[in-house]
Design a protein around this nucleic acid. Structure first.
Lengths: 206, 206
DNA sequence: TAAAAACTTGCAGGCTGTGCAACTTCGCTC
DNA sequence: GAGCGAAGTTGCACAGCCTGCAAGTTTTTA
């Protein structure tokens, strides 16, 4: 019960969350078994016991059912970024803003490991992970620009957001592939620390 | 004549390059005018005077006609990365490896500015710019791992490649939006320098 | 010049994704 | 607790994407 337990005010919202979760679960399971190209929306819908028309009431495309997660709504991230302490760097502020999302992923780790496995096996999905475009990224760029007191055309904010996204994405993939039980925030901290250090070459392992 | 002048051995190859360029140009022009969703493959093909079936002999999907460019073939980039001097950091090696591609883009700058405008106006295309997945990225990760003498599971190579890709992408977008005639490599150098410095906050402009 | 290879095209067909119009379910109020 | 309106589900029709296949055409090569 990690997906449906968020303040579902009435029966209607509860059912919606259930249907959505069922579609996501069915989509991930089927694609893990057969690969992205060998699963149709109709099959996913059937597995979740709804019509395929209903599928498209929840998701705008097949990929979205595999990658999007209500726990990763962009608004809280942007809000936390805006609320981050002023004394840390913009990069660290982004790191802090991601904390809640990292916690949510860690809490739902079985689902997310499956999701990340599916994404790894179907690289076409990778760009959907931490958008890479999207309104959320635009909003984060704007918040960082305000925070730094620079104009909207300054080079720094989009660079910081793009790099932070890349770091988060690689950290998630490594976390999912990891056999030990290291928590996600370890991998994220490692990546952000390496970036803050200017990405120096690590000592060779020879 | 910047697209068709690459060693086209025979008439057949010359015609192929012409057809491809015509399709790309038609696609970019129509999408710039009407937006991605209001242009069909059939219209693009008609504008380039081929059948829509032929369109799909050149591109696997509509987006590919807008984003892919023969001048940005991944193989030379990987080769240059493998040939980069051993004394510079992996990050700098990637920067060096991109030099030829940067030159090609700069040489074809009218086409590329249109392309980047189209990508900016249709963010769904953005992830296709400098893949974000793709065999080329995998190959670059492998080359960096070898270069550093670390195992294939080390965290550094994928992080460096992902971050470098993010930097290159943001640099291209800023270059295309820039009104002055600053060359692309300026923007790329700026981004890579900021990353090598650990992305410190810039001095506020107040 | 003739055979082989490569390219183009039309056609058939499956899948994606959307607008629309019923129909059903749910929440709320009197 | 009856009923009204909002919200969700579904089927249907349809445009568009993309692929496989087979037939026809052009270019290369011998």
């Amino acid at each position: 019960m990690t997906v449906t337990d968020q303040a579902a005010t009435g029966r209607r919202d509860r059912k919606k969350a259930q249907t959505r979760a069922a579609l996501t679960a069915a989509a991930l399971r089927l694609v893990a078994e057969r690969g992205l190209e060998h699963v149709t929306v109709e099959e996913i819908s059937e597995a979740a016991d709804v019509s395929s028309r209903t599928f498209f009431n929840y998701f705008t495309c097949k990929d979205e059912a595999l990658t999007d997660d209500p726990a990763l709504d962009g608004n809280p991230v942007v809000a936390h970024l805006a609320a981050a302490p002023a004394r840390v760097s913009a990069l660290q502020a982004v790191r802090v803003a991601l904390d809640e999302a990292i916690g949510a992923i860690q809490a739902d780790r079985e689902l997310w490991r499956l999701r990340l496995t599916v994404i790894t096996q179907n690289p076409a999905l990778l760009p959907r992970l931490v958008a890479g475009n999207s309104a959320t990224e635009q909003a984060m760029v704007a918040v960082v620009a305000t925070r730094l007191g620079v104009g909207p055309d300054h080079a720094h904010p989009p660079l910081v957001i793009a790099v932070a996204g890349a770091a988060f994405r690689t950290a998630m993939l490594r976390w999912a592939a990891d056999d030990d039980a290291r928590p996600l925030h370890d991998f994220v901290d490692e990546a952000f620390a390496a970036i803050a250090a200017g990405l120096p070459d690590p000592p060779s392992a020879c």
